[in-house]
Design a protein around this nucleic acid. Structure first.
Lengths: 332, 332
DNA sequence: CGGAATCATGCAAGCGCTATCATGCAGCTT
DNA sequence: AAGCTGCATGATAGCGCTTGCATGATTCCG
């Protein structure tokens, strides 16, 4: 093992460069405020000493950590992944580090992770899903910016960046009706957002005087693996639906595979729609009709807000609706 | 907005409980060393003040951050996701927070992220993939434990937890040969590990006096979306292969879909094998023959090592081979 | 050409915690 | 009863950085 000699500190660099540590600190955080000649000496000193800044000390002194917590329900087969990948990339590009938490479906777990994030004095927390009331209080009085994504609560805790799941459900109902489908079957993940889409779909469908809607629920997340059971359940219905509305493209993909394996043609024998416009949706055979959500835009809006917040600017708005786009493809 | 009054500190809690801050600190880190009665008073004081520990200060004073960096190439369609999800869960359970970095294919990006992690004085860095030589040096002299996963380099920088990609390639060659396949086509992601598997496969295949092996390369990660082009390329080969060896189950899945869409039966018309035993592999129609890697075991071994390292124990070994398992299913 | 304005830098006081050492007080032993 | 051991707690010195204020050196302009 190499000798773990102590890390060089700001003072070491300062001594080497013949300036005070304050100047080195300024150089690091704001290079243009130091004189060019000094800057050059400091640059050289940093290289010579192999200095690595200590962000713990920095965060402690400045009371900002340049870190943001990203809390997601799942990683595998998640409809969120594009958003999260975009988020992490954009955050890194903005010089912010990401603290990742996986909440599962438990709001207790979420609370725990939020506490942890607050312990680290994160600059912002990006989350989604239900919150315990006491944690809302905690978050409210913390200086960290709280951002809820993929949803637009009536009263956001901090900022919300998402879209209306009701509108998405409603639009899908109209779309399928206009395409001539009459017996939709909804497979919904057991969560709040999916429930909103489902309820809005059903309400709109009935308003349009459509036929009976059958419903099924799967565990969160709505994933490929649920397809076998979901399809078996469909076969047991008294009357076969003509279109299946899935909570994710992964589930939709699984259903298509099952349907085809059972000898049904998609969409003629059974149509299928997904949700999220995951990369597979456009590649599946048949390509999957779905709802596109611009994850990268969500990421960008969130990060712009964080940047403004960090600069001390007051929040501009409480929620940002990034909308969604229904993409009609081959599967329905 | 709620009044952002200052966060209570250890001293506030101490005053409230009528003890010194040192005792409160001890209580937090090691509850059993304080007298039960005192402990109770402190517990009450923490609740009363709404104290949230400041892990930045803690980390700075103790020189350990209770944070580990996890660096992965991708999030979407990644063969790693199960491992990462397990990793994050197990780390959280062990009271460690996760700093996530997405490296892409660039080792420069990896270096940058490692520097960032070192800046935060992480207790460990979990990474995979190629490293720039200078960063190896940096990591070597840092007190953080460096763990390479999903591979077993000849000379690990710190600890390696993975399996032999050569062995995996070799075993797959033997398996396919024994099944009677004669014209394999390999679709390999453009990365080191996949390359090792490919080379070992080819070498073994030739040693077994098998027929010609055709090769193709796709971008990292080896994902579903590559399937269309990959399949089109296969059709253009002078002679159709009898089995396609894919770099991931996602790609394998895509190929099966393409093959079926083209009227080929899998495995009779064209067999397909994947890699990684992702959740879809066992659910696809036909189910996918693949290589299983125990991601959760990798996570657990890594975390056990981190825990020991944090406790000051010397490292037990340089690399841990978790092996792999070839799972024969319907697709080949 | 003198005083004001501007600029680059230094000084030093923390930020909130941990860890070492010291201290006082019980409970034992002989 | 005197001395000792062990335990629970207190006092305190940093950990490495940022930042407001002070300072000295330039520059500017009437």
């Amino acid at each position: 093992m190499a000798p773990t000699r102590k890390n060089p500190t700001l003072d070491d660099v300062a001594a080497q460069a013949g300036v005070s540590s304050a100047t080195v600190s300024r150089f690091i955080n704001n290079p243009e405020v130091v004189a060019p000649a000094t800057a050059e000496r400091i640059r050289a000193a940093i290289a010579a000493t192999g200095y690595i800044p200590n962000l713990l000390a920095s965060g402690m002194a400045s009371n900002k950590s340049k870190m943001v917590a990203v809390l997601i329900p799942h990683l595998t087969d998640s409809i969120f992944n594009d958003t999260i990948e975009a988020m992490v990339e954009e955050l890194s590009a903005a010089g912010l580090n990401v603290m990742l938490g996986i909440t599962g479906v438990s709001s207790a777990r979420t609370s725990e992770l939020i506490r942890g994030a607050l312990s680290r004095r994160v600059d912002a927390i990006i989350s989604s899903g239900p919150l315990e009331p006491e944690i809302v209080e905690l978050v409210r009085r913390s200086p960290a910016l709280f951002i809820q994504i993929w949803e637009l609560p009536a009263e956001p805790v901090g900022l919300a960046v998402g879209f209306s799941h009701e509108a998405a459900g409603r639009d899908m109902a109209r779309f399928l009706m206009s395409r001539g489908y009459r017996r939709p079957h909804l497979i919904t993940a057991d969560g709040a957002r999916a429930g909103q889409r489902r309820d809005a779909f059903v309400a709109e469908w009935q308003a349009l005087a459509g036929g009976e809607v059958t419903l099924a629920t799967v565990d969160i997340p709505s994933r490929y693996g649920h397809a076998r059971r979901a399809f078996a359940d469909i076969r047991r219905l008294p009357e076969l639906p003509d279109v299946v509305v899935c909570g994710s493209d992964y589930l939709a993909q699984g259903l298509i595979v099952e349907a085809q394996a059972a000898g049904l043609r998609v969409p003629d024998g059974l149509a299928v729609v997904g949700f999220g416009n995951s990369s597979i949706a456009g590649e599946m055979r048949p390509t999957i009709t779905t709802v596109d959500v611009d994850g990268r835009r969500i990421a960008r809006e969130a990060i712009a807000a964080i940047t403004r917040h960090a600069a001390g600017e007051p929040p501009r708005e409480q929620s940002i609706d990034v909308g969604f786009r229904l993409i009609a493809r081959e599967s329905a």
